[in-house]
Amino acid sequence: MKELEKTKRISIAAVFSILLVIIALLSYKKPKNLYTITTKTALEMLLDKNIAVNVDILNDTTIVPIDIRSQYDYEKGYIQNAIHMEAAEVLSNENIEILEKIKANNKMAVLYGNNPEGVIAPYAVLIQMGYNNLKILKVENSYHQNQLITKNVDLEKSIIDIPKFIKGSAKNANIKPKSNTHKAPKKVITIKKSKKNKPEGGC
């Protein structure tokens, strides 16, 4: 009789634990907007020089331009057929739906903002979520008489040879140029010499 009660308790405990696991599984919500690639793959993708494209790409009508600037800027003027998707809101349900649709239709989307530096953040987040059909438009947008002016810009291009400029400045002043590396001064530790005691007394 005692043994039967013991086995009953074990069975009840096992059933409860299974029920607990089932409830946990049913209540588990899959987190939204998960990354689909590792940081290593993301870095490799970001290193690709073809991620940034010129404005000429917009001649292709299948390309979907996406404006990530503020609502105010977008309303002032935008590239033809551009969809507005403010940078901070690119992960909203509505925008994710749009991006999914573009991807499902095998279309490419180009993100643009006031400058390419402003686009890199939302772009890098989206490619890590698996939207590999995106590019960055290498343009700078400004307004002239309420008209949007879009011009191509170069990325990561050095504007001047700085060492040459520094040398040139020294040449103009007729002195030798100083190197730009400043070594930390050596610490000098002074050691006090112990005074010799005067000889006292003695013969």
Partner: peptide, 24 residues
Amino acid sequence: GLVLLPKQEKHKGITSAELLSNAI
């Protein structure tokens, strides 16, 4: 069922929403 759970390697780091808000 644990085998079916998403691989951790791909989801390493802060969430995409956090990353976007920090990056902006």
